[in-house]
Design a protein around this nucleic acid. Structure first.
Lengths: 99, 99
DNA sequence: CCGTATCCCATGAGATACTG
DNA sequence: CAGTATCTCATGGGATACGG
């Protein structure tokens, strides 16, 4: 599952599951991920065919990211993670591991 | 999900889902993971409360690793990954991403 | 058998400044 | 707005050798 292994990839996919997002939308939802890292991981996800990027040639530029059909197949994996996270997020034990 | 984020952690958990394993058992099942890396990731999983280690004070030493109750709660996540992997492992496209 | 210690290089990732 | 470029330091991870 190298496809998800990147530190932020699963989070990006999670946010894109809610629908198309712009670069800044994603950044606001992941304040701990630097602009540089976000760009790098988005690029990798794109190369792996998980997400697609649409660029509108207006000024200033506008881009939109969304899941490809292939990326959509990852939904069950991400939702399994989310379900697990919801169960254990509020607990004191293992808090460091859950993050 | 830093708990699974380590390069080999999900694979270790996957193998331990089949039951208790010795260090060498795990190593044989993960030839691409060095002994050093295996030891490091096992230790982290132990610290995070995902797995437990039992050492038998015989010579030569014998150790056994198994999932804790907490570790067992990760089953749905790992099986979701496995299901996804089974679907896409054999396909030509995205092969690099699946790995 | 099951690790740890050390050395060393490759990659990761923040900060900052710049561009179409 | 949505990135790139560069510099720099931190971390990851292989190889090898050693230890209980």
């Amino acid at each position: 599952m190298q496809i998800i292994a990147g530190k932020w990839k699963s989070v990006i996919i999670y946010h894109l599951m809610a629908g198309t997002q712009r670069f800044n939308d994603l950044q606001k939802q992941m304040p701990d991920c630097s602009r540089r890292m976000l760009a790098l991981q988005l690029h990798e996800l794109q190369v792996d065919g998980v997400i697609q990027k649409k660029v509108y040639p207006v000024i200033p530029v506008k881009t939109e990211y969304s899941l490809t059909d292939f990326g959509q197949t990852l939904r069950p994996v991400i939702t399994a993670m989310e379900t697990w996270g919801n169960l254990y997020n509020q607990r004191a034990t293992h808090q460091a591991a859950v993050d």
